[in-house]
């Protein structure tokens, strides 16, 4: 693209950070507040789409050398592995557990195995959405 939209690019450079932060908040807050892996993943994907709109495909790929197909596959594997891990403790498949620990900076924090599962959902959603969008947009008609 020869024409460069400076306003758009500059705005998006800032916006992407805000959106990314929000999406990660949504992901981790999902346990107690509205949100979760699915919506978090979609918001992250929308940030990436904004990058694609402002820049071209190749620059975004240089900036973020991620194969989204692999990311999606990894997400599915993470989700399945959280399920199988419960076999180690002789409990049924996909049994989730949680505990409270005192972390140095955060104080009393809840650690839940469900968050790892949600992370898998998050990765799958990003990977799939971006795979669909990039493969459609790269299509040479």
């Amino acid at each position: 693209m020869k024409f460069t939209d400076v306003f758009l690019q500059t705005a998006i450079k800032i916006l992407v950070f805000i959106i990314m932060t929000f999406s990660i908040y949504v992901l981790f807050a999902g346990h107690h507040n509205p949100g979760g892996g699915f919506i978090g993943g979609l918001i992250t994907a929308s940030a990436l789409v904004l990058l694609y709109i402002a820049f071209d495909l190749q620059s975004v790929r240089d900036m973020m050398p991620v194969d989204f197909n692999q990311l999606a596959a990894a997400g599915v594997i993470v989700a399945v592995l959280t399920g199988t891990a419960s076999f180690l403790f002789h409990v049924p498949f996909l049994t989730q557990t949680f505990t409270y620990v005192n972390l140095p900076l955060l104080g009393k924090t809840e650690l839940a195995s469900a968050v790892i599962f949600d992370l898998g959902v998050y990765m799958t959603v990003i990977g799939t959405t971006m795979t669909i969008i990039t493969s459609i947009s790269e299509d040479q008609k």
Binding site: H32, P34, A112
Partner: peptide
């Protein structure tokens, strides 16, 4: 489940 968000839980 240690979660306040029922939907997510």
């Amino acid at each position: 489940a240690g979660a306040k968000n029922i939907v997510n839980a």
